[in-house]
Nucleic acid binder design. Structure first.
Length: 426
RNA sequence: GUGGACGUAGCUCAGUUGGUUAGAGUCCCAGAUUGUGAUUCUGGUUGUCGUGGGUUCGAGUCCCAUCGUCCACCCCA
């Protein structure tokens, strides 16, 4: 035991009990994305470290202390991706699919951040994200947000609240940021340690402080929405109208600030109070400056990412059922000749009945032992092939969970019974 | 990175003020029923007590370190 190798901290194994629900969610995500005309991209897990420094921001926690970075053999610094947007923009510039085009893209995959693990926060975690480019107006912002709402509907998730805000254009945001720093600097001695640090890293974040002592100070601070430029204000107002028009409920949260440097104008989060401290299930916004910042031609962009682990946790607390993956049938084989005949019988049945999940006994065992395994497998039906059946050219059929008599039938009629079982079940 | 709680069979957990050979349930295997599961009965396997040090005649129990899990801060999906 002392020599046992454990998984890396914060990196979890997903076992068969969980993968059913994961596949269900993945299927729904794909269907909704594709239903909105979004197309899938699969991007590398590793990028040059420089990409993340330039996109996420030098002084963010992610870049400063949470990246898994290492030196490649050619001495270049590489990093496991901490988020998906940067790589997507990089790929867009590299393959020229942003220039004068309006792609809508989605992806699903693992991200890596070296944080202290906690409920809903892991070092390897999975995000499903969408990114769209080349569209300036609030209509695409609204479509994207409405699409996320459609996801929750399709998945049957409830209790998520949509919060939206506008950070303004890059220029407006910087101007406001300076005003805010100026304001808080006057009261620096009253700030707590965290907020004094935020003064340098992300002053907008101070507005979101959980410290009750700062409440009155924060309330006296300059208001972000009052410092919006005209263009951003109009954009935000039109977005709110569009959301209302398609029946997506939202609340404006003036303190909503995303941690990544590249956001502009629209930002939004879907939050829940059912997951403890990590209540943000999905978040995103507009990032009109990033493509240019990374060397492409100026291109507006909007996107969001949702945390798979958090979404799955929410589904679990709300009692979502895992996708059915128990076998319909367990094939019992006793004796050498039955074992020989079993493989092709199993193949025949699987070929004749689409969707059939047939589990064939392997590893021998008495009738009793095999029936035990059949029961444990969860199968509805046990098929029995022994010397007796082989002689008659039949297969025994026993219903493990229904009150129906056991019978012996030729293969063709067994197939009909199984077809019935498949269509009754899932 | 900071603070707190916790690590005992595969799983869920007991284990007294430190005292012989560490327990229960469950799971698994076999038998009762030589071709029939889930119920019942009988028997059986399962552990470097997270790891490494220390205190002690003696440590699952006390102390230190370390690894891990969980919760919160911070941060974020």
């Amino acid at each position: 035991m002392s020599q046992q190798i454990q998984a890396v901290r914060g990196m979890n194994d997903l076992l068969p009990e969980q993968t059913g629900l994961w596949r269900h969610v993945e299927r729904v995500l794909r269907a909704v994305f594709e239903g909105h005309g979004y197309r899938e991209v699969r991007l590398p897990l590793v990028e040059k470290t420089e990409l993340f420094r330039r996109s996420i921001g030098e002084v963010t926690d992610i870049v400063e202390k949470e990246m898994y970075s290492f030196e490649d053999l050619n001495k270049e610094s590489l990093s496991l991706r901490p988020e998906g947007t940067a790589g997507c923009v990089r790929a867009g510039i590299e393959h020229g699919f942003l220039h004068n085009q309006t792609p809508r893209l989605w992806y699903l995959g693992a991200m890596f951040r070296h944080e202290r693990p906690q409920k809903g926060r892991y070092r390897q975690f999975h995000q499903a994200g969408v990114e769209t480019y080349g569209m300036t107006g609030p209509d695409i912002d609204a479509e994207l947000i409405a699409m996320s709402a459609a996801l929750w509907r399709s998945l049957g998730v409830t209790g998520l609240q949509l919060q939206i805000n506008s950070l303004g254009t890059v220029a407006a945001r910087h101007a406001y940021r300076e005003k805010l720093v100026e304001y808080f600097k006057q009261y620096e001695t009253q700030l707590d340690e965290d907020s004094r640090r935020r003064l340098l890293t992300n002053p907008l974040r101070i507005l979101d402080s959980k410290n009750p002592d700062l409440k009155s100070l924060i309330e006296g601070a300059p208001r972000l929405l009052e410092h919006l430029d005209e263009e951003s204000r109009t954009h935000f107002d039109r977005l709110k109208n569009l959301l209302a028009a398609c029946g997506v409920e939202f609340v404006v949260n003036e303190r909503l600030v995303r941690g990544l440097d590249y956001y502009t104008k629209t930002v939004f989060e879907w939050v829940t109070d059912q997951l403890g401290a990590q209540g943000t299930v999905c978040a995103g916004g507009r990032y009109d400056g990033l493509v240019e910042q990374l060397g492409g031609k100026a291109t507006p962009a909007v996107g969001f990412a949702l945390g798979m682990e958090r979404l799955l946790a929410l589904l679990e607390v709300q009692g979502s059922q895992s996708l059915e993956d128990t076998p319909h049938v367990y094939l019992i084989l006793v004796g050498e000749s039955a074992e020989r005949a079993g493989l092709s019988l199993a193949a025949t049945l699987r070929g004749q009945i689409p969707g059939l999940r047939l589990l064939m006994n392997c590893g021998g065992g008495s009738f009793k032992a095999q029936f035990k395994r059949a029961d444990k497998s969860g199968a509805e039906i046990a098929l029995v092939l022994g010397d007796e059946e082989l002689e008659k050219g039949a297969v025994g059929v026993k219903f493990l969970r229904a009150d129906r008599p056991q019978q012996q039938q030729p293969v063709e009629q067994v197939a009909a019974l199984l077809r019935e079982a498949v269509s009754n079940g899932s």
